[in-house]
Amino acid sequence: MSVCEVKNLRKEYPSFTLDDASFNLEAGTITGFIGRNGAGKTTTIKSMLGYVHPTAGDISYFGMPFAGNENIIKQRIGYSTGMVNYYPKHKLREIAGVTKRFFDSWDDESYRRYLKTFELNEEKTPSELSDGMKVKFNLLLALSHRAELLILDEPTSGLDPFSRDELTDLFVYLKNQGVAVFFSTHVTSDIEKCADRILYIRHGKIVLGDTAEGFRAKLGQPGETLEETMLRLEKEARNQ
């Protein structure tokens, strides 16, 4: 079942254009959105959520167009820009206490459970958390309102290998619960570890969106890791 459909998304900046991006996100799948820094990952995500205004294109979630249904849709999705940098001196308990008021489907039981799973201390403030714990707190807020789709912009950036490993394990767990996870990254090993589908963007254009196997079959060479494939493709593009 498609939970998000992006059609011909275009965003023009004076020095960059996100050009005609189209893709689908399915329930119970992990989609890794890969591309080098400045390729257009964040612009795509922000356009999907209306934080920047697309020049053209259609975005729909759960069969509803985003325009006009923003608040209903946001009740069903979770978005994270990676690390928490808001309200650095407020206790996590206070932030969660305010957040829960906005979500109809907020589940205190899930909140407590994930709090324990993520080993987060509610009495701490974001400024007292490590980078990995900040990402987890953002995820905790998203998961506590039973988000059906998680859109995560560079959630693993800046994390140590252990924290990244924990996070990708969590993505797999959520996928098995039926949640769709869409995360951008430039860390190929995170994609290799958990993604069912890969969406590759270069210079604002989607080069390919396919299953992980399909991606390797179409763009990879025998014996190549995903990182080697990406490096080769980027070098080829630069030399052209």
């Binding site: 608040n71 849709i73 946001k74 978005y79 932030i95 957040t99 906005f102 979500f103 807020l141």
Partner: peptide, 17 residues
């Protein structure tokens, strides 16, 4: 300083809200 707008964007509210 507290990145309040960034936080607000995570909530199910519109920019007008």
């Amino acid at each position: 300083e507290k990145h309040d707008i960034e936080y607000s964007l995570l909530l199910p509210v519109s920019k007008a809200d």
